[in-house]
């Protein structure tokens, strides 16, 4: 925005000459806009195609040219996907798993982040270094021992296998600590003078003002665990325990290329909660991206 101001002023002084810096700049800008629109379209069109094809008759789903806009919508695919696979079960499983992880991580991360920022305790710096180090561990490389652990805990093919290992989050702890570090220590002093205990100071004074980073953490975890595929694929075996991404892939496998409109209806259903949360909390998403880049 602000970079455009100087370009306009230089265009004014040299504007009479053909292909002056100002004129050239206008050409650049026009070409830039075209490129921007084309690439942005390439990012939106696959989703548009998914929505419009999910609303076409199954036997027309592969007919070309594709219709990009959902004209004459056919809703039968949406009822079909619930009849042909336990879509409602997948959906409920996803809601339960994602919901529990989001809530539990909010609790644990807020508590531990607060402790690391504002409480003095023995071994704190060493523990925080360990937390930071585990933040860098890619989950894929430790999946084998976690799988064995899950089996010994009797949790294989159980939704708990997804929830329990995700109760504590190194990233959430880090995110909350960073926020609490900026909080005034006077708040705790004031609470202490009023005779509040440690936990009361935390829950009554600090948690209410820590809602923005909690929202960021919730939104990030929602999007990460709602879309998760690798762990559910390994930990869950029976169809009735599948979450949406694994369920949809199994649905695609069953149908081959037969009725893609029905599969795409499932994809759209899985996407709706994500889009809804994005629209409600877009700000926290963007903050989460820049915060998420610490990982």
């Amino acid at each position: 925005m602000s970079t455009s101001a100087p370009s306009r002023s230089s265009g004014k002084t040299l504007g009479k000459v053909t292909l002056s810096p100002g004129g050239l700049r206008r050409v650049y800008r026009g070409a830039g806009l075209v490129l921007l629109v084309v690439i942005a379209a390439a990012f939106v069109l696959p989703i548009l195609w998914t929505v419009s094809t999910s609303l076409r008759l199954p036997n027309e789903s592969f007919s070309n040219p594709p219709s990009w806009l959902p004209t004459d919508p056919v809703w039968s695919n949406y009822s079909a996907v619930f009849e042909q696979v336990p879509m409602l079960t997948f959906f409920i499983n996803s809601v339960v798993v994602t919901g529990l992880i989001v809530i539990l991580q909010l609790i644990t991360s807020t508590m531990s982040g607060y402790a690391f920022a504002l409480i003095r305790f023995r071994g704190k710096n060493a523990l925080f270094a360990i937390v930071l180090a585990t933040m860098m561990v890619p989950a894929q490389t430790t999946i084998i021992p976690v799988f064995i652990l899950i089996r010994y805990m009797g949790l294989s093919d159980n939704l708990g296998a997804l929830v329990i290992p995700a109760i504590g989050g190194a990233f959430g702890t880090f995110l909350m600590r960073q926020y609490f570090l900026q909080m005034p220590a006077e708040l705790a002093e004031a609470g202490r003078v009023d005779g509040a205990g440690h936990f009361q100071i935390f829950s009554k004074l600090y948690v209410p003002i820590a809602l923005p980073p909690m929202a960021t953490l919730a939104v990030l975890n929602f999007s990460g665990y709602w879309n998760e595929f690798f762990r559910p694929l390994i930990f869950l075996q029976s169809t009735n325990n599948f979450t949406l991404p694994v369920g949809l892939v199994s649905l695609q496998g069953n149908f081959g290329t037969g009725s893609i409109s029905v599969v795409l209806a499932g994809v759209v259903i899985a996407l709706i909660p994500s889009v809804a949360i994005f629209l409600l909390a877009q700000r926290y998403f963007v903050e989460g991206i820049t915060a998420g880049s610490f990982r």
Partner: peptide
């Protein structure tokens, strides 16, 4: 109190991330 606040996160991180490495 600090240990108590860290305990839940710490246990989960220890059991499901640190030890698996």
């Amino acid at each position: 109190f600090g240990w108590m606040m860290f305990a839940l996160s710490g246990l989960a991180i220890l059991v499901f991330t640190a030890l698996p490495i």
